[in-house]
Computed example of a mutant assay.
Amino acid sequence: MKGEEAADFRAFVESRWTGLVRTAYLLTGDHGIAEDIAQSALTKAYVHWRRVQRADNPDAYLHRVLVNTNTERFRKRRVAEQLGADLPQSIGVDPYGRFEQQHMLREALADLPVRQRAVVVLRYWNDLPELEVARILGCTLGTVKSQAAKGLAKLRAHPGLIGARLRVEEYCR
């Protein structure tokens, strides 16, 4: 890779690293694994940087690589992984209970199957259109819609989120 291409790639990585790790964390539930997956996805993007640059939407291309990299770790290990409910220690105090709500949401996301979690995270957390999520995951628009509906139904029924809604309503009174 030449100097100008390397500078373009460096700028691309710097502008997307935080969001990429955040998305990977929501897919995996583990900050260390999330950073590893983000690095692996960026390594693959580096190897194919010219193709990434030519893509209609480089961010969608990168998200697809990220989701595929996450899926590959399950295929390679052949061991069922359970996402932990424990989050890394946070710095500071959240006086409005936002941290607790986020913790509940992450717990509920951890209970979703991998495909549903990927659809919900890409569609609602990253605010991507359904068609783009379908392209990233390599599936049909109908699959995205059905997985989103099933995932949202499970999230709505999750006991931790129901309790969080009640606490929020009580807090706002």
Score class of each variant (00 low, 15 high):
167 R>L: 10
77 R>F: 07
52 V>G: 08
16 R>K: 10
50 R>V: 01
35 E>W: 05
60 A>G: 14
119 V>Q: 07
5 E>M: 05
5 E>A: 12
54 R>F: 10
165 R>Q: 07
111 D>R: 02
59 D>T: 04
41 A>V: 04
144 V>T: 08
73 R>M: 14
28 T>N: 07
108 A>D: 01
80 A>E: 15
30 D>C: 12
32 G>L: 03
151 G>Y: 04
163 G>R: 07
55 A>D: 13
117 R>M: 02
4 E>A: 12
13 V>T: 01
69 T>C: 02
2 K>W: 12
126 N>Y: 05
103 H>M: 04
137 L>T: 02
156 R>N: 10
127 D>G: 12
89 Q>W: 03
55 A>I: 05
65 V>S: 07
43 T>E: 11
161 L>D: 01
11 A>K: 08
18 T>G: 05
170 E>R: 14
143 T>Q: 00
173 R>C: 04
36 D>T: 03
163 G>F: 00
29 G>K: 05
7 A>M: 09
40 S>F: 03
42 L>W: 06
121 V>L: 04
104 M>S: 11
44 K>Q: 11
90 S>A: 15
151 G>R: 01
66 L>E: 00
61 Y>G: 03
123 R>A: 15
36 D>L: 03
50 R>F: 04
43 T>D: 04
41 A>W: 03
47 V>G: 04
58 P>M: 03
87 L>M: 07
43 T>Q: 13
85 A>Q: 09
13 V>C: 09
154 K>C: 05
